[in-house]
Design a protein around this nucleic acid. Structure first.
Length: 731
DNA sequence: AGCACGCCGACT
DNA sequence: GTCGGCGTGCTC
């Protein structure tokens, strides 16, 4: 009798199990292949995980597979292994994890894009000096096409310009006779070769590249540790070039593509036609195309944000994680994975080197580099010969501040501007004022849905909750006693207004999430800043990201104190990183810049360390502290969160969870439940339980057993339980 | 999660 | 009488 075969299938449901199906004789799906299947009363999409001889449930319950969606697997075997681990490690349903690795269109069962259908290629089609009214976007498009000297796809154009051009926009330009479209010739166009690196490499850079390439095919992890301006990007690009030259694919992860348009442009220019970019700004179709181009090796270099980690890359040879300290690598909802940690795991599974780059590495990474588990590559010298900036504190108890600004800060700004250099003023709070309050009766404008004050946004005359987005019109007088209200605390918008009064004739810009919301606004702002001579830029941490500016003489930090005294696990570390990243903007090409920090606590150990200026030295005491308290990297944490519509039921459920966790705890401390630091967000109440252990295994045992229990005795539907393994913040 | 079944309240 | 509220149970 012919042997029947069965497959075990992953499905996009929050059920922590796989489902077995009978294979009709003509269907022999391989692991990683998408299939359509009957599920309950409907049809759904699944991914085959493995073949099995005997199903896990009685054969009477087994149903037959519907159909294959693709002729071949869409996910590779090593990627499936990574996804299995991910589900186990983060205690998340495997089906959701697996389907999450697919672009949304494929998750819903859409067909793969047909690689034989070429995209349009665009070229400039305009007489050189024909006088015409052309907008800045159109001009930039035409300039990019002329510079490329070859017709480009829309994707390639967007990579080069960062404009996010839509098809309709290009078609409008074509209708006006500015552009012409032609179908792509067979095969990829090979635009003009850009040659090797633009600047000669330093010996340190050459050594780093040689070390990385020397580990090809081995799961070696590198920490590429170098201050701003030390040329980490050149090391990435050159290592990538050599890996590509050997026929491998390269994955470069970056924290947020939207904030680093310069990097995409730089990579696209260096590797024309070879780069696929994957990030949240893409429309569904573009995302699918980029993903599939990377999967098929059509574009062997994939540049993307954290989710790009799950892209199948059959010939992957090298992974680079840029700015590894950036918390954006940790997904904060649903599947709480850390893309940097999983990148390292992927390196092990696929046996390839992983490069973690940062000027301010996390304590976790530094500790592993110090203990020798990672190879530590240092780029100490800046290729342009500049020295690091001097860091000084301004004691706000001595120097009073008005709208956030002290007199010495203003003096330093005047000096810097007089030298023809720029001032960057960093304040990590957007909006106008922190709160709206009444001096007479003490009323404060609070969010009706969260435990948070509403932030004043004067420009749009509204108050906004930064937690849930609730907004309401600004009121002039107190709703309780009718007295006029006062704006308390300073945000970037208020700082901008104050500075425009102090420096009425100086160019002034603001850079924060609100100012760059419109498409292309960030690119325009960065361009303006770069073109500006002396001037002032006010902004949030976006200012501290790795943009390159040539003329910054002063970086002023308005308020670090909330970072010094926050009780959160990583507050000190992250404050250090933020200040140093910001400081990295100061001083280029011979001119050391200056960093001025306003603080009420200049004697605080962190501030003393900052003045000394050496990140590695500052980290020592922080690591000691972590060791003594058993915190990461010397101990392991997991956070169990319960949230629900009412405070009492949520608390009861959290208490039951904690009881269950304690029942299974072996060498695991179970702390709580306690109301989460922001107890109420978006009309939901949140309780949390912290698990701590000196061993990973015991933590996972406790979580696993508890999870099994609640799968069997599920809590009411309106209560949600989520597990955050290796939480980045306890808030 | 989806989806259906099931058992109680105010409508044409 | 029946449309529809959301509690509960199941999915190979």
């Amino acid at each position: 009798m012919p042997q029947e075969t069965f497959v075990r299938v992953a499905i996009d449901r929050p059920l922590d199990r796989l489902f077995d199906y009978r294979c009709p004789p003509e269907l022999r799906p391989l692991p990683g292949q998408r299939v359509r299947l009957p599920f309950g009363r409907t049809d759904t999409v699944g991914v085959v995980m493995e073949s099995v001889e005997t199903p896990a449930v009685a054969s009477s319950r087994i149903r037959a597979l519907g159909a294959l969606i693709d002729p071949d697997p869409v996910l590779t075997a090593p990627l499936l292994e990574l996804l299995r681990f991910t589900a186990r490690y983060y205690h998340h349903p495997l089906g959701e994890v697996v389907l999450n690795a697919l672009p949304p269109a494929l998750r819903r069962g859409a067909p793969l894009p047909d690689p034989r259908v070429p995209e349009s290629l665009w070229r400039a089609d305009i007489d050189a000096d024909q006088p015409r009214r052309i907008g800045p976007r159109q001009q930039a498009t035409i300039d990019a096409l002329r510079e490329a000297r070859a017709p480009l796809t829309r994707d390639a154009l967007n990579d080069l310009t960062g404009l996010g051009l839509r098809r309709a926009e290009l078609e409008r330009m074509a209708a006006r006779g500015l552009l012409a479209a032609e179908p792509a010739a067979s095969g990829t166009p090979e635009p003009s070769e850009d040659g090797g690196p633009a600047v000669p490499l330093t010996p340190e850079q050459r050594d780093a590249i040689a070390e990385i390439i020397g580990q090809t095919g081995r799961p070696t992890v590198f920490l590429l540790d170098g201050v701003t301006g030390s040329g980490k990007t050149e090391v990435y690009l050159e290592a990538a070039a050599r890996s590509l030259a050997r026929g491998g694919q390269v994955l470069i992860l970056i924290p947020e593509i939207a904030l680093t348009p310069q990097l995409i442009q730089r990579v696209s220019r260096r590797f024309p036609g070879q780069v696929a970019a994957l990030h949240s700004g893409l429309a569904a179709g573009e995302r699918l195309r980029a993903w599939d181009d990377a999967r098929r090796g059509e574009r062997p270099l994939l540049l993307g944000t954290r989710s790009a980690l799950f892209t199948p890359l059959p010939r992957l040879g090298l992974i680079i994680v840029d700015e590894e300290h950036d918390p954006a690598y940790k997904q904060q909802d649903g599947l709480h994975y850390h893309a940097r940690d999983l990148a390292i795991l992927r390196g092990h599974i696929e046996s390839l080197p992983v490069v973690l780059g940062s000027a301010t590495p996390t304590l976790e990474t530094l500790e592993k580099a110090r203990s020798g588990r990672y190879r530590h590559l240092r780029l100490g010298t800046r290729p342009d010969g500049s020295r690091p900036p001097a860091v000084n504190c301004l004691d706000t108890r001595v120097h009073a501040t008005d709208e956030g600004l002290s007199a010495p800060m203003l003096d330093a700004m005047r000096r810097t501007l007089a030298q023809g250099r720029q001032c960057f003023i960093l304040l990590n709070r957007r909006g106008f004022a922190r709160v709206l309050t009444c001096d007479h009766c003490g009323w404060v404008a609070d969010c009706p849905r969260c435990d948070a004050h509403l932030t004043v946004h004067a420009s749009i005359r509204r108050s906004i909750c930064h937690l849930c987005g609730f907004t309401q019109p600004l009121t002039e007088s107190c709703p309780q006693c009718g007295q006029p209200l006062r704006h308390l605390g300073v945000g970037t918008q208020r700082l901008e207004r104050a500075l425009s009064r102090h420096f009425p004739d100086t160019p002034l810009m603001r850079l924060d999430r609100d100012s760059i919301r419109r498409r292309g606004a960030l690119e325009r702002s960065l361009e303006t800043i770069r073109a500006m001579d002396a001037g002032i830029v006010v902004g949030t941490q976006i200012l501290a990201k790795g943009h390159d500016f040539p003329r910054v003489g002063l970086v002023g930090i308005i308020d670090v104190d909330q970072g010094l005294f926050s009780s959160d696990l990583r507050a000190a570390e992250q404050t250090l990183q933020l200040v140093l990243q910001a400081a990295g903007r100061a001083g280029r090409a011979g001119d050391p810049g200056e960093v001025l920090i306003q603080t009420g606590h200049p004697e605080h150990p962190l501030m003393r360390a900052l003045r000394a200026g050496d990140y590695a030295a500052m980290v020592g005491p922080l690591l000691d502290e972590r060791r003594h308290s058993g915190m990461p990297p010397y101990g392991y944490l997991a956070l169990v969160r319960v949230d629900g519509p009412g405070p009492e039921a949520t608390q009861r459920q959290a208490e039951e969870m904690a009881r269950e966790l304690r029942r299974h705890a072996r060498e695991v401390r179970v702390l709580g439940p306690a109301p989460a630091p922001r107890h109420r967000v978006n009309r939901r109440y949140r309780e949390q339980i912290l698990l701590a252990s000196s061993r990973r295994a015991t933590l996972h045992h406790t979580l696993g057993e508890t999870r099994r229990h609640w799968e069997e005795h599920p809590p009411p539907r309106n209560l949600r339980i989520s597990i955050d393994v290796d939480p980045i913040t306890l808030a």
